[in-house]
């Protein structure tokens, strides 16, 4: 039965992720006073790329990059329970806790870095360098916030953390939430932290040498991974979800916030984004950690 459960989780994340990406493009268009594409546009793009023929080969390691990235995204999804009470849609979360999820979230970018490095495209390498630099900066506040949440809940199990919130953590520990939210905006690749695939600067960054099926795979994993990260944030800070309706509206509110945030701000330079993430959210997270440990639950 667990196979069926995992398949359902993957299918849900795939379709919801793509519809969220379509909404992202549509809502951003509305912010810019455009009509914008349909909400299925990203799905169309992905399928179209799947039907294209590869024009070039850089050897097997080049193609392994997107596959490792997709593996990282899908494994992350499997270890995050969608609901805190239900047996179904809990995936493999009984076999691994938050530490494993944080580790798996790093697997994809590192695998992709190897693949892009083999490709030799200078813009790809620049994108990867920017991505890893940003990764080190955004992890700092996020990990402090997550450690504080774990110590508050006295557990590293995601379902337990989600279920144990009488007042949701976003309100009970707002400083931790704000710090994690800055990191989350960076994790979702939104402005002002969108230095990795920065259009005009490094073209599409790590993806610039990929075409056809592998670009399609990259888009799919991005949709799945985004949904996994949204579910993780909902579980840690917004009190988790008890059913699909609750999960969808909570993830959507969070996603809408990220879109709106990204639509307003311009892009940082890479050093600026690192400086900002290390200074502002980290300090907020440390203060939040002190509050949480000193005054407790």
């Amino acid at each position: 039965m667990i196979i069926l459960d995992l398949a359902l989780m993957l299918i849900t994340a795939y379709f919801v992720g793509f519809i969220y990406y379509g909404l992202y493009r549509n809502i951003t268009a509305r912010f810019q006073r455009r009509i914008g594409p349909t909400i299925f546009q990203s799905f169309y793009d992905s399928i179209k790329f799947f039907g294209k023929k590869e024009a070039i080969s850089h050897g097997w390691m080049f193609y392994l990059g997107p596959i490792i990235m997709a593996t990282g995204a899908i494994m992350t999804l499997f270890f995050i329970p969608f609901f805190y009470q239900s047996e179904s849609f809990s995936g493999l979360s009984g076999y691994g806790n938050l530490f494993l999820v944080l580790y798996l979230m790093l697997l994809g970018p590192l695998g992709n870095a190897m693949g892009v490095g083999v490709g030799g495209n200078p813009f790809g390498v620049m994108g990867v360098t920017r991505g890893l630099t940003r990764l080190f900066a955004l992890e700092l506040p996020f990990y402090i916030a997550v450690v504080a949440i774990m110590s508050i809940s006295q557990s590293a199990d995601i379902a337990t953390i989600a279920g144990s919130q009488t007042t949701i953590n976003a309100f009970a520990h707002p400083l931790l939430f704000i710090a994690a939210l800055f990191s989350f905006v960076a994790m979702m690749g939104q402005s002002p932290f969108d230095v990795v695939g920065a259009p005009v600067e490094v073209y599409s960054g790590p993806a610039s040498e990929f075409s056809g099926k592998f670009l399609s795979l990259l888009m799919s994993q991005s949709a799945i991974f985004s949904f996994a990260k949204l579910v993780l944030m909902v579980n840690l800070f917004l009190g988790g979800a008890d059913g699909f309706f609750e999960l969808l509206w909570k993830t959507f509110v969070l996603f809408l916030f990220v879109i709106a945030f990204g639509a307003i701000y311009g892009r940082f330079k890479t050093p600026q984004s690192v400086d900002f993430l290390i200074k502002v959210p980290t300090v907020i997270a440390i203060v939040g950690l002190i509050f949480a440990t000193a005054w407790g639950n």
Partner: peptide, 17 residues
């Protein structure tokens, strides 16, 4: 707003139609 017809810019030749 060409994007409403599904037409958008691509960054590199590899991704372009």
């Amino acid at each position: 707003d060409a994007e409403r017809l599904g037409i958008r810019g691509a960054a590199t030749p590899r991704q372009a139609d």
